[in-house]
Design a binder for these strands. Sequence first.
DNA 1: GTTTCATTTCAAAGCGCTTTAAAAAAAGTT
DNA 2: AACTTTTTTTAAAGCGCTTTGAAATGAAAC
Lengths: 344, 344
Amino acid sequence: MKLKDLSLLLGLSQTTVSRALNDYPEVNEATRKRVKAAALAHNYRPNPRAKSLATGRSMAIGHVIPISTKHEIVNPVFADFIAGAGEVYSRNSHDMLLSMVPDVEEELTYRDLAAKASVDGVIVHGPKPNDSRISLLQSLGLPFVVHGRASDGDTGYSWVDVNNRRSFERAANFLMDLGHRRIALINGLEFMDFAQRRKDGFLDAFSQRGLSPDPALMVAGEMTEEFGYRSAHRMLAGTNPPTAFTVSSMIMAIGVRRAIGDAGKKMGRDVSVVIHDDALSYLPNGADIPIFTATKSSVHLAGQLCAQALLDIIQSGDTTPQHTLLESELTVGESTGPAPKGAS
Amino acid sequence: MKLKDLSLLLGLSQTTVSRALNDYPEVNEATRKRVKAAALAHNYRPNPRAKSLATGRSMAIGHVIPISTKHEIVNPVFADFIAGAGEVYSRNSHDMLLSMVPDVEEELTYRDLAAKASVDGVIVHGPKPNDSRISLLQSLGLPFVVHGRASDGDTGYSWVDVNNRRSFERAANFLMDLGHRRIALINGLEFMDFAQRRKDGFLDAFSQRGLSPDPALMVAGEMTEEFGYRSAHRMLAGTNPPTAFTVSSMIMAIGVRRAIGDAGKKMGRDVSVVIHDDALSYLPNGADIPIFTATKSSVHLAGQLCAQALLDIIQSGDTTPQHTLLESELTVGESTGPAPKGAS
DNA sequence: GTTTCATTTCAAAGCGCTTTAAAAAAAGTT
DNA sequence: AACTTTTTTTAAAGCGCTTTGAAATGAAAC
């Protein structure tokens, strides 16, 4: 059933039928009713590609995920983010086009998407300081929203981000209020913008008290359980082990917890841990009482917000940048307690 | 730069240019060279939607992910699978269309995809016994490959699956060989096909020795850390606790490990654990020596295989079902050891 | 030097929709 | 009743590509 068939069937022109279905004002209300009823009855669905060709709009949003030619891991946060964004697209009858491309081809992919208008906009994932994608997309004129920010500037484009700096400042301060001073930071790779900001926040907390952290207790690496374990294991085995950890993700924290256990210590009593919790659906932070004390911010929600912001921009054509800074919620769980007596 | 421009530029007809670029035989080799060089020089990229409208093929593959109207979690396996599939699409210049739809609209989504040929084929995720999507897709004539199988029949369609039954049979047998008899099964929800098969394999191992497992030690639930923890915690606190666990995922096993620690026991010495490891990139099973003894099968690879199988089917037009049964690899880690003396 | 046949090129139609510009119908004015 | 204005409908062009059927070209055959 195509438009032509439907119009023949109704004894109307394609023009009128098309307009009736797309809610153009210049069509008689009675006619519109009739057309819509017929469309429904005959289960008519416009061909999106024909529509797209005619309008120049694709009704699709692109997500370009670079596949590192190196070993880099698939971002575990990805699934929940995408799910959030996808819900919004779905509700607004947009498609989501996912491109997994080798990182060297990333720029080319964006150029193609823009040149052929395969998508009406894109979401930029995992921004790095001075991210070249941002200027590229600006020059291409392709609407986009960044999940996160690029440290060098956050005014010229739209983004949705968590206040990572403040989160880690609060985390560190919370531990200091409990008497901890030897606090470790187990962070994600610091060429990622969010990791950089978390480190800054961590440092802020120290400098606010005229202190400075032990550089030996600050590490950054891939956000795996394994890295969390190794880092914590090494630190705990040192001569002057930390009494507390701030950890950049639940998954790394699981490794930290394992290391604490292996060291014969008890989390929350001997060693405190504060994590940043992305509220991943498959890694709930305990059911009733939180396992970890955490600064929590749902990445699923971030996905929804990014998607909605992008659709708004596309719809309105308004290019003034929109910024959404989410504040994380500090929830106290069982993983923190006062610093053990006698610890430096 | 569109086809018309290019043809004008070359002093050729659109027909010839189009044919030259698409490697039709009826074009002079010299002309083809000239055309291709010009296309490259002017960075010509055919508009996919126009192409698609003309050919009827979309060069896109659909993945329909139902969003449960209930609380169901986002599948953590999803990201790695998608990444694997995406790589293959990308290499074959196909797009991936991801639809997150409320589960009640799932069928409608498939109908739409088929009716409008928005995609050339789809991957079916998470099949359930008697999965209605399979017959629906068959009747729609939309090519598809299932990741997993539907228990009621696995001959009439193409699938890529892990030998789940055999994996859990081996896991249980491995534990029995170590002297364990009170072995628990912590499984995913058993309306999922894979979970059903794992249970079957688990039972097989027992019946092979004329034994049967304690039903109290067999649970199924959402595959979260939390569920693993609770289940193990409860069992270990019982009067006749298990000496070993078989666990359906790394994430649940992390919960099991926590419960073992909380119970003051040591994994690998007091309590053994065998898991199924999907080889998720962000949850490596240890670096040098595996933490968990595991039946391992990469879901990333499964994604690649599904994608490739589907592209092959689409390309060849051959509808005879293809089956790929992956055998998992049993790797012995530190989480297993002989059954403690005196345990029943 | 025609005729035949294979090779190469082209004009035009078509994919299914939107949209411009114009026509037809209905409603208001004098 | 004749004219103007507004409302409603339509024919046709266009989006950028492929493909059909026909035409031009060149080589081979007579």
